[in-house]
């Protein structure tokens, strides 16, 4: 009989590579969702009219924000998925403990966030091109704002970080549901309650404050700090909750 020593680092990396292979289908569902979002974003999001001399002006603004939103939802749902029984127990066929499992899940979600962020921004270009070819050239004016390549790069980083926060949130929700099924009911109720109560408070409602805290941040570095700290806290909370979870019960 020979006993083998393994390190946490080794196992986390092995699990991470394993997950990239075994959870590969999450990227297929991302493709499906982004394509659905692409179909949805054909409608203009904003219409503005005005009267100039001899002109009845209408300006329609189109954006692929829907793709971003759908990518967030994808991130949220898939993070929940990887906390479900089937996925959690996969790991226990191989070498694992709950710590390495959690770390490798986190690495996987970070990777998924980057992939989600990059593809979401790129689908935006596909959307723009499709729009260009399907719109009357006389009415097509192009990008209303000057966007530099640096802005796009910043956008990719920001989108990935948003996606990461949604992954973290989904992961936490998934973990809580794994603790007790009753939370599948309680969590939506809490969210609705929060929005209702938030809407009745004095001044700016809490949910809007949260929204403005992230979406209203125009400094890239501060945004990175906010989103990374948020994600890290949520992941830490998830790990704390799941550290004693039994499997194959």
């Amino acid at each position: 009989m020979s006993l083998n020593k393994v390190t946490t680092r080794q196992i986390v990396m092995k699990q991470y590579q394993y997950k990239l292979k075994a959870y590969y289908q999450v990227f297929n569902s991302m493709v499906i969702l982004q394509v659905i979002a692409l179909l949805f974003s054909t409608g203009g999001i904003m219409f503005r009219g005005g009267r100039g001399f001899g002109l009845d002006i209408s300006l329609n603004t189109y954006t692929a924000d829907m793709i971003i939103i759908f990518t967030f939802l994808w991130a949220f749902i898939n993070a929940i998925t990887i906390t479900t029984k089937a996925y959690r127990e996969d790991d226990f066929i191989f070498v694992t403990n709950r710590q390495t499992q959690h770390l490798s899940n986190m690495l996987f979600l970070i990777t998924a966030s980057v992939i989600g962020g990059v593809t979401a921004v790129l689908v935006g270009y596909l959307n723009d091109i499709i729009f260009f070819f399907t719109t009357d050239p006389k009415t097509f004016a192009g990008y209303s704002e000057l966007i530099t390549p640096f802005d796009v790069l910043t956008g990719v980083v920001a989108t990935s970080l948003y996606v990461l926060m949604f992954c973290a949130a989904g992961y936490l929700v998934g973990v809580i549901i794994q603790l007790n099924r009753i939370f599948t009911v309680i969590i939506p109720v809490l969210i609705i309650g929060f929005l209702i109560v938030g809407g009745q408070t004095e001044g700016i409602p809490v949910n809007v404050r949260i929204y403005l805290f992230y979406v209203g941040e125009t400094d890239v570095l501060l945004f990175m700090l906010k989103s990374l700290v948020t994600s890290a806290l949520i992941f830490a909370g998830s790990f704390f909750l799941l550290r004693n979870k039994e499997v194959r019960v």
């Binding site: 006993l3 083998n4 946490t8 196992i11 403990n97």
Partner: peptide
Amino acid sequence: FNSLYASANSI
């Protein structure tokens, strides 16, 4: 429970 060493040497 949560030992990587035990996990690597048992199934």
